[in-house]
Simulated scan of single mutants.
Amino acid sequence: MTHVAVAGAGPVGLTAALALARQGARVTVLEAGEGLAAESRASTFHPPTLEMLAELGAVDEVLARGLTAPTFAYRDRAAGHVATLDLAVLAGDTPYPYRVQLEQSKLTPILAEHLGRLGGEIRFGQTVTGAETTTTGVRVHAGATALDADWLIAADGAHSAVRRCLGVEFAGITYPERFLVASTDEDLHALLDALAEVNYVFDPVDWSVLLRTPDHWRVLLPTPDGSPDEAELARLDTRLRQIADPGRPWRVAHASIYRVHQRVAVSFQHGRVLLAGDAAHVNNPLGGLGMNSGIHDAVAYAAALAGPDQEQAVTTAAADRRRIALEYVQTVSHRNYERLTATDPAARAAHLDELRAIAADPARSRAYLLRACMMASLRPVTA
C-alpha cells in the first residue's frame, strides 16, 4: 500500500488526501494549526472543480451549503453595468454550468469528514519543517519527529516550509498595490442595478470586485503601497460609499489588507516531493483561479499515484501542472488585472464593447467562458 504524507490541511491538501484515500492509499496529513483554519479566503468553485468534487463524493454538500452563481457581470465605475455572462451556455460541456460561492473554510470540514470515514489521518499541531528523498521514499520532518512515507505532497501554502527547505526558487512578481478585502452584510442588490453574484468593476484607479458568499458580500479594492493600514481602513467607508451609498456608514464585519504575488516554483517535483497549490504557484484573486487550480493539482497528483508506473506518471503530472500554472493560471489572472486597471480610454472602451458583444453571442460566450471557468485548461474543447 502506498503511503503518502500531505503537508497542510487546507482545501488542496485535504483534496489530495481524500482522492488518495479513495484509491486505497494510506494517507497522513500534517497540519501546523491546532484545527482547520477558519479564515474565509478563497470562495469561488468553477465547473471543473465541482466535477472533481463530485468524483470525490463531496459535491452534494458543497452545493447544499454554497450559493449557486449562474452568471457573473462586468461593470464600469462610471458607466455602471456593462455585460452579464450566463454560464448556462456551458450546459452541453459540464453538468455544473455555474459557479458555486462557498468559503474554503466551509469546504475543508466536508473533506476532512469524508477523509475520516476512509481512515485517513490528520495530525494537528504538526508543523512540517523539511523533507528529503531517501532510498525508499521521503522522510518528512515535523518539529522533533520524523515520518517516513513513499511520497510527500506539499500543500503548505505560499510560505511553504517544504519548498524553502528544498531551496526551490519561487520566481515572479509582487504587485505594486496591496489588496483590501471587506466583508459586509449590506444588501447590494438593493443598492446597485443589474448586479450578479460576482461582479468585476473596471476603473483605472479604484477598480473593485463585488462577490457574494452565503454569509455576506465581499468587496475587493486596491490599496496604495506605503500607506499605513490604519489610514486605509479609516477611509474604507468613504470608498465603499463611492460604490453605493446607503445614506449611512456601511456595515463592515471584517476588513484586511494583504500583498499579492504572481509566482511559480521552478519545478513542482523534487524527488519524492510534489508541490501543490500555493506552495507551487500563487496568483492574484481576479477570476478565482488560485484555489481551483490547487485542487486540480491535487487531483492530478492522486491520479498519477494510482497507477503502477508512479515515477513516470508523477513526473508527467508535475510538468503538466506547472505548464498550466504558467500558460493558463498566471496568464489569465494577470490579464484580468491589466484589463481592470487599464488607463488608456480607447483601450478601455474597446474592451467594454468587446464584452458586450461576447455577452450577446452564445457561441462567443461559450468560448469565452470555457477559458474563464478553467475548463479549457484541463481538456480539449470543441466548437
Rank of each mutant, 00 (worst) to 15 (best):
M1S: 13
H3S: 11
V6W: 01
A7E: 00
L20W: 03
R26G: 14
R26H: 14
G33A: 14
A38N: 14
S40K: 15
R41A: 10
A42G: 07
M52T: 11
D60E: 14
L67Y: 03
P70W: 03
D76V: 05
R77G: 01
A79R: 11
G80T: 04
A83K: 07
A83V: 04
A88N: 08
Y96A: 03
Y96H: 11
Y98F: 10
V100M: 04
P109A: 08
H114A: 14
G125V: 06
G130E: 04
G130A: 10
E132H: 07
T134R: 05
V138E: 00
V140K: 00
G143P: 01
D148F: 09
D156T: 07
H159S: 14
L166I: 08
G167L: 08
F170S: 02
P176Y: 05
E177F: 07
E177H: 10
R178C: 09
R178W: 10
F179L: 13
F179E: 05
V198I: 13
F202K: 01
V209G: 00
L210I: 12
W217A: 01
D225Y: 05
A231I: 07
L233I: 08
D237R: 11
T238V: 13
I243W: 06
G247L: 11
P249M: 13
A255V: 05
S256I: 04
Y258Q: 11
Y258I: 08
V260A: 08
H261W: 02
H261D: 03
V266R: 11
H281G: 01
N283D: 10
P285W: 03
G288L: 02
V299Y: 07
Y301M: 15
A302L: 09
Q310N: 11
E311Q: 13
A313R: 15
A319T: 12
D320S: 15
L326Q: 13
E327Y: 09
Y328S: 15
R335P: 05
R335Y: 15
R339F: 13
T341L: 14
A342I: 14
A347I: 14
L352V: 09
L370C: 07
R371H: 10
M374I: 10
M375C: 06
S377Q: 09
R379W: 10
P380D: 15
